[in-house]
Design a binder for these strands. Structure first.
Length: 426
RNA sequence: GGAGGGUUGGCCGAGUGGUUGAAGGCGACAGUCUUGAAAACUGUAGUAGGGGUAACUCUACCGGGGGUUCGAAUCCCUCACCCUCCGCCA
């Protein structure tokens, strides 16, 4: 959510952001918002004036009554005034609700370093690292390797649940677990606090982080008004909702492993082969809350953390700087990391690291100030950042494909061996 | 699932429908004293929004939302959460 004052005073910037992000629909929201905001502010001053009168009279009536004097006349006047106040209050409430809804439809503003672009084709390759492996045999895609050795069983998942709910078995399941361990330990070493969390959230949390209303169709809704989390970012970012933090506690760094659930409506073809895109997957995520001045430094640092993991795993990858049109509703700047999938001959996105600036924090009301909660300084909104380190299925796919041997076995990357327990999947 | 009791400022905790934005305590901050600290004493301080160059001033906020009333922290309804008891399941 943007600051209403900012919107009011910087209409052109907001308009440009909407256009750059290819969200033409939001322009209507902006226009309507500006009108309602004007109306709301006029109404407010009228209302507040009348409230002030009412408060004064009420006080006077109290005094008269205490002294045992007659206040009937004043009470009659108050009746009329109160009615007006009540009507204005009602109007004010409904305007405020409308304004709020519209505010939720305005996207975050891209950082100045974000290139303009209409879609994925305009993303900029910011970096490429590692050699694509060469084989003296025809490398296979991960689903062939895994099915042949029984490392996962997609049919079984279809049976128990439906398409896109993979079942991992034996050494396949073990590889998942080993990777999760490796990632979390790595992040612990870097000062991230590990969190284990609920896999469902309420609408309030989902609204605060920006999934609602923007991505409602992407989430599974279960009973009692809960949503299955599409990413653990949602819970991590909400951990300090409505809190004022001491500056010294920043940056706050959280890491978590969780299952993630996404409806992924409209996906098809090679995108969904094997475990390229599934409805339930595992992910290790990092979230940081920082002071505004330090958030872009943190974005680089978090991206480098994910890259370091890919390097340690020996997977060739590239870093994309996402263009304005492909970066999503809440982000100010975002990098995607993609690994080379040799069996499919394509890049697979395994991480996405974003700076949300104050866009989430404004809804979360997560603030900080010098001197802590009861300090004197004015509270200020934190910046929130999130990034995957890393998403499991595609990392597994890349490992299987890039480390495959001619006989269908897979060499386990060295850094994972302590967790996996041996050097070869067979 | 049923029946009761709760939710007040950073924390604890008063609060009778009418000068209560809210006593008191703790904690915080500033000052006095002290070589320094502690103690003691004195003082300051909620959050958000609006108006004003400023001094200042207005409004809202006592879990959330609605209502009753001339007037609500206080009465009513509703939702959420916490506690106790009963039932059910582990």
């Amino acid at each position: 959510m943007l600051d209403i004052k900012f919107i009011r005073e910087n209409q052109q910037i907001v308009r440009k952001a909407i256009a750059d992000k290819q969200l033409g629909e939001s322009l209507k929201s902006l226009n309507e918002l500006l009108l309602l905001d004007e109306e709301f502010r006029l109404l407010r001053s009228d209302l507040e004036e009348k409230q002030a009168k009412r408060n004064a009279s009420s006080k006077k009536i109290g005094e008269l009554k205490r002294r045992g004097e007659n206040a009937d006349e004043l009470i009659q006047d108050m009746g009329r005034l109160s009615n007006e106040v009540k009507k204005l209050e009602e109007k004010s409430r409904s305007l405020e609700a409308q304004i709020n809804t519209l505010m939720l439809e305005l996207p975050n503003i891209p950082h100045q370093s974000v290139p303009y672009g209409q879609g994925p084709q305009d993303n900029v390759v910011a970096k490429e690292h590692g050699e694509k492996p060469q084989f003296d045999f025809q490398p296979k895609p991960h689903w062939e390797l895994a099915t042949a050795r029984g490392w996962f069983d997609l049919e079984a998942g279809v049976k128990t649940t439906g398409a896109g709910f993979p079942v991992f078995k034996g050494e396949g399941a073990r590889l998942l677990r080993a990777l999760i361990q490796y990632f979390l330990n790595k992040l612990n070493d870097l000062g991230y606090t590990e969190i284990a969390m609920p896999l469902m959230v309420n609408a309030e949390s989902a609204t605060a982080t920006g999934q609602l209303p923007d991505k409602e169709g992407q989430m599974y809704q279960v009973s009692d008004g809960f949503y299955l989390i599409p990413t653990s970012e949602l819970v991590l970012a909400n951990l300090h909702r409505d809190e004022i933090l001491a500056t010294e506690t920043l940056p706050i760094k959280y890491a978590a492993y969780s299952a993630c659930f996404r409806r992924e409506a409209g996906s098809y073809g090679k995108d969904v082969r094997g475990i390229n895109r599934v409805h339930q997957f595992d992910k290790v995520e990092m979230v940081q809350l920082t002071e505004p001045a330090k958030s872009y430094e943190a974005l680089e640092q978090m991206t480098e953390t994910s890259e370091a993991m890919l390097e340690a795993l020996g997977l060739p990858y590239r870093r994309l700087l996402m263009c304005s049109g492909d970066m999503g509703f809440t982000q100010a700047k975002k990098y995607d990391l993609e690994v080379w999938s040799v069996g499919q001959g394509r890049w697979l996105e395994v991480s996405s690291v974003s700076n949300i600036e104050a866009f989430q924090a404004r809804r979360l009301q997560t603030r900080f100030r010098d001197g802590g909660v009861s300090g004197k300084a004015k509270p200020e909104l934190v910046h929130t950042l999130n990034g995957s380190a890393l998403a499991l299925p595609r990392t597994v796919a890349a490992i299987l494909e890039n480390y495959q041997n001619a006989d269908g076995t897979v060499t386990v990357p060295e850094v994972v061996r302590p967790y996996f327990g041996k050097a070869l999947m067979e």
